[in-house]
Simulated scan of single mutants.
Amino acid sequence: MPRRPTRTVPTVILPGWQGSGPGHWQTWLGEQLTAAGREVRNPDFADLDHPQLDDWLAALGASLDGLTDDGFDVVAHSLGSILWLQHAASSTTAPRPARVALVAPPSPVTHPDEVDGFFPVPLDVDAVRHAADGTVLVGGSDDPHCPEGIAEAYGRPLKMATTVIEGGGHLNVAAGYGEWPAVLDWCGRDNLAFF
């Protein structure tokens, strides 16, 4: 059987509140993609500990500069997923990624006061569909930051494909997600499905 070619488009990585530290799967993913010769873009957020939506949207916009429609992917975690939904609802001129993976977005109902400016979350089906060729949701079955479950909180309202990982928690370092081969595999494939 011939080997399938590996996807080589740039990847924009959007971290959550307080960023992705050295043990986080997003940091590992960026290192793996860079080592494979892939372009990785990380927005230069002014303050990861005290996020401001306008600042984060501007940094995201700057990281998308020069990318072409359908010529890149976005991988977002936690508050980075909310950032993408805010971007999708507010931007009409930014380049459009081929694929977006929204991993472990926090509940649209309950969230810490420190990130209040990112809420309410715009759950606009048309905006999300217009913002990318395809978007997939990935979340843990027992995410403490989304107690109602990712399918209920986001999948159903957005009419979006949702992958639920049993026992995945918040899909962060505390839940054992440092090296995460499944996300690296997703970045190397052309199809949208996470598994």
Rank of each mutant, 00 (worst) to 15 (best):
L29Y: 07
L33Q: 01
D47H: 11
Q18W: 04
L33S: 00
P10A: 08
L57E: 11
A59C: 05
D49Q: 10
L48N: 04
T27N: 13
E39Y: 14
V40H: 05
A46K: 10
T11W: 00
G30T: 15
P43A: 15
L48G: 06
W25R: 07
W17Y: 06
L14I: 11
Q26V: 10
D65F: 04
H24C: 12
P43Q: 07
W25Y: 07
D44A: 10
D65V: 02
S63F: 00
G30D: 13
A62Y: 05
L57N: 01
V9Y: 03
P15N: 01
T8Q: 04
Q32V: 05
E39F: 14
W28K: 09
G37S: 10
G37Y: 07
D47E: 09
F45R: 03
D44G: 11
G61Q: 13
P22W: 06
E31Y: 09
T8L: 09
P43S: 08
R7L: 11
E31M: 07
L29Q: 03
R7F: 05
S63M: 10
D65R: 02
D47M: 08
G16C: 01
E39M: 13
Q18C: 06
P51A: 10
P43I: 09
S63G: 01
H24Y: 07
N42T: 09
T34C: 14
P10N: 14
L64I: 05
W17L: 14
A58D: 12
P43L: 08
P15M: 02
S20M: 09
W28M: 12
R7M: 04
E39S: 14
L53P: 08
L29W: 07
I13K: 01
F45C: 05
R41E: 09
P22R: 02
A36D: 11
G30I: 15
Q32T: 11
A36G: 09
R38I: 00
R7Q: 09
S20R: 02
T11H: 03
L48R: 02
S20N: 04
P51E: 08
V12F: 01
G19K: 02
V9F: 02
H24R: 05
H50W: 06
A59P: 06
P51W: 03
G21F: 03
D54P: 10
D44I: 08
T27Y: 07
T34G: 07
G30E: 15
E31H: 11
W17Q: 15
G37M: 15
G37L: 15
G19H: 05
L14M: 08
V40Q: 13
G19F: 03
W56E: 03
T11K: 02
H50A: 09
V40T: 13
W17C: 12
I13H: 06
